[in-house]
Simulated assay, not measured.
Amino acid sequence: MKVLVATEKPFAAAAVEGIKKEVEAAGNELALLEKYTDKAQLLDAVKDADAMIIRSDKVDAEVLEAAKNLKIVVRAGAGYDNIDLAAATANNVVAENTPGQNSNAVAELVFGLLVYTVRNFYNGKAGSELKDKKIGILAFGNVGRNVARVAKGFGMDVYAFDAFCPADVIEAAGVHAAKSQNELFQTCDIVSLHIPATPETIKSINYATVNQMPKGGILINTARKEVINEPELIKLLAEREDLKYITDIKPDADEDFKKFEGRYFSTPKKMGAQTAEANVNAGIAAAKQINAFFKDGCTKFKVNK
């Protein structure tokens, strides 16, 4: 079987080496398409691939239809909105992600950004501390649980809400279970977003939602850009000079947000999984899942129907 690693932004060399070892140990062939600059290159590379590993690369209907031999595509990471799931199903392709592999990296980034923020972006002026602050975690999956773990180390009061995670599971992790998303925003000084971009969540973080936050509230987004209703958040930040918005996903309206100097920060590009460890973990996990699929038909991490 031919396994294509198609990455516009390549894996670290150690990750590629680990993927290669996993793939070849199972008797499969590895092909690399790195730093490609045109979709035509991807369309050509997938023609004879039986499996594909991607990062943030878009696998749409055109790519899937060009990949006549493709049986499985694995996104090395938790989010998978860059794969057209309906088109994958229509082309009899299994789509998978690698949940949990980047979780610690994202959680650590959350606190790197938070410390930077509460210390006034290190501008020399007195800031505040995270200890005893209330942090709300919206979605208690792999990343959310790691955020809770780190928050406890800072001595924070940790809350979480997840529509799909029972309150007793959240409480068992030593975290206060909010009864609703609204309660989370009303209660917490800081709200950290870890929700996926779905029809239900897209633009759900809006004026009314965020306006419930206490004075001096900080909204931090290391999830997906699409969950933010940008025009409404801009309107709110203009009205409430006490609020801050911090993200590792540059908004479409970045220039408008930049007007809120001292209350807005975005990294130049998505940074959540940008660690050597996460890079290697996710890549090797993807290779192992492909090997398991070809060996035993395992689809444990399948995300399409």
Rank of each mutant, 00 (worst) to 15 (best):
N221V: 02
K39C: 00
D242H: 13
V210I: 14
I284H: 00
L70Q: 07
K250I: 03
I72D: 02
K134P: 12
K259H: 05
G144W: 08
R75L: 02
G124I: 01
D242C: 10
I54E: 07
D189V: 03
A15F: 00
V175R: 08
K71C: 08
A76V: 12
M52S: 13
Q101S: 14
G27T: 02
V5Y: 09
A40H: 04
E96M: 15
K259L: 06
D242V: 03
D48M: 14
K68W: 05
I228G: 01
H176T: 13
I54A: 12
V115C: 09
A223I: 03
A148W: 05
K35W: 01
S204T: 11
A178M: 04
V191N: 00
M52P: 03
N211M: 00
P199W: 11
C188F: 06
L184M: 08
A172N: 12
I249G: 01
V118L: 07
G272M: 05
V106N: 07
T267C: 14
L236T: 01
A14C: 06
K134R: 13
E22F: 05
L184E: 05
M213T: 02
N91T: 03
N97R: 04
L219M: 04
N123P: 00
A126G: 06
Y159T: 00
D252H: 07
T198Q: 08
L64F: 04
A208F: 11
K244L: 15
F260T: 03
Y80C: 03
D296E: 15
L43M: 09
D162C: 14
D60E: 06
G79Q: 06
L43R: 12
V175L: 11
F154G: 01
P214C: 15
D189Y: 06
V158K: 14
D50E: 15
I218Q: 10
I284V: 15
N97A: 15
F257N: 02
G112E: 11
I83G: 11
D81W: 01
R145A: 05
K225H: 12
K305H: 12
V3T: 06
D162K: 08
A95L: 03
T275E: 05
E200K: 13
K259G: 12
F265W: 15
K300P: 00
I284C: 03
G155I: 02
L4H: 09
N102K: 10
V5S: 00
V175F: 14
D132L: 15
E34N: 14
E8Y: 00
G283E: 03
K9H: 14
L184W: 04
T198H: 14
V106G: 10
